[in-house]
């Protein structure tokens, strides 16, 4: 039996119109539309497009969450085995919509999703980690090349065939690191690469050093007298027993703990969940990592207005940057909502 595919395209490729029609709301057609014909040819008897979703680029861009949910609702009854979006070439809003829909659909239905874009399409940077995006030329002139490559990859994913490298399969590197066993010890590979570098021969590094985002420190607090200060730590301080089971390494969560009336973090009530340092001294006196005692003293002296009644803690030990970024964004949202004006971040 042929695999059931749902195809996503914009208003232009559906023949509705260009920019002036970009605000059309999503609709679904039980038909093969526009580039779908090329996919039909490429799929042959292995797969068939059972429905085509059409949505205006502007509508999607201005209503991303709503449009995504609407489309998911429309697709559901077709019970798709896979999802294909575009190709969007270098059309920015279209690419973003294709990427977003691939991400949403694969998450919702746990099925393969493939799109096609020009590498500089902003949809690539946003969604390459969550979807396979075939590299295409920058305009629809590349349709004949893009569609067979997208169809081939989609069929491979459906069949569960082991994929080759991104270059071999034609998709844009997703930036996901995957372990594999090599034929040689890592030591031997390293010495071999070293010799090539010494001799000026070509070699391929196994890991391209990343470029980091840098966060400039905030300016000093001008009005300390009126500051509401919160404590946030990656040092793992939590109530004794670690009630939220924050992991000793590679934390998947952070904790929020009320310290109303707490003047001192004593060893009978607080400890650390951190597995990356010797916990002896933090367990004996958690103020060493999260200085509640000192701040209470300063609060009393009137150095600042108030110590916030909650602190936030996670374990910064082998913790993925993506998790840390999410914790940070969530914690900041809560602190701002609670009227906190300054934060002391303690690490270990």
């Amino acid at each position: 039996m042929a695999y059931r595919i749902v195809h996503y395209i914009n208003q232009f490729y559906a023949g509705i119109g260009g920019e002036e029609k970009a605000d059309v709301t999503p609709e679904i057609r039980e038909d093969v539309v526009g580039p779908g014909l090329a996919f039909k040819a490429a799929f042959g008897t292995d797969a068939e497009i059972v429905a085509t979703v059409v949505c205006g680029d502007s509508y999607f861009a201005s209503n991303m969450e709503k449009a995504g949910a609407e489309i998911i609702g429309m697709i559901k009854k077709y019970e798709p085995d896979a999802f294909v979006a575009g190709p969007a070439f270098n059309a920015g809003r279209y690419g973003t919509a294709c990427g977003a829909m691939c991400e949403a659909v694969s998450k919702e239905f746990n099925i393969p999703a493939v799109s096609g874009m020009y590498p500089e399409n902003p949809g690539v940077e946003l969604y390459k980690k969550s979807a396979y995006i075939i590299e295409t030329p920058d305009s629809a002139a590349g349709m004949r090349k893009a569609v067979p490559a997208m169809a081939k990859l989609l069929l491979k994913l459906l069949a569960g065939t082991k994929l080759g490298t991104p270059a071999e399969e034609g998709y844009i590197e997703r930036g996901i690191r995957k372990n594999k066993f090599f034929g040689k010890l890592a030591a031997d590979r390293c010495v071999e690469m070293f010799v090539a570098k010494l001799k000026g021969e070509p070699f391929v590094t196994e890991y391209k050093m990343p470029v980091f985002d840098r966060v400039p420190p905030q300016p000093a607090v001008k009005d300390m007298k009126n500051a509401v200060i919160a404590l946030v730590t990656s040092g793992g301080i939590c109530p004794k027993g670690n009630p939220d089971h924050i992991e000793a390494s590679s934390a998947s969560k952070y904790g929020e703990y009320d310290i109303t009336g707490v003047m001192d973090l004593t060893s009978d009530k607080y400890c650390t969940a951190h597995g990356g340092y010797d916990a002896t001294y933090a367990d004996a006196d958690a103020d060493r990592v999260l200085p509640v005692d000192v701040l209470r003293g300063m609060e009393k002296e009137g150095v600042f207005k108030k110590l916030h009644n909650k602190f936030y803690a996670t374990v910064g030990n082998g913790t993925a940057v993506a998790s840390a970024r999410r914790f940070g964004a969530e914690i900041v949202g809560k602190l701002v909502a609670d009227g906190v004006t300054a934060v002391i971040l303690t690490s270990t």
Binding site: T165, R174, K178, N179, F181, F182, A186, A187, R189, E206
Partner: peptide, 10 residues
């Protein structure tokens, strides 16, 4: 480097 494990980008 005492094992043959490594990683690649997909």
């Amino acid at each position: 480097g005492y094992t043959k494990l490594g990683a690649c980008t997909i």
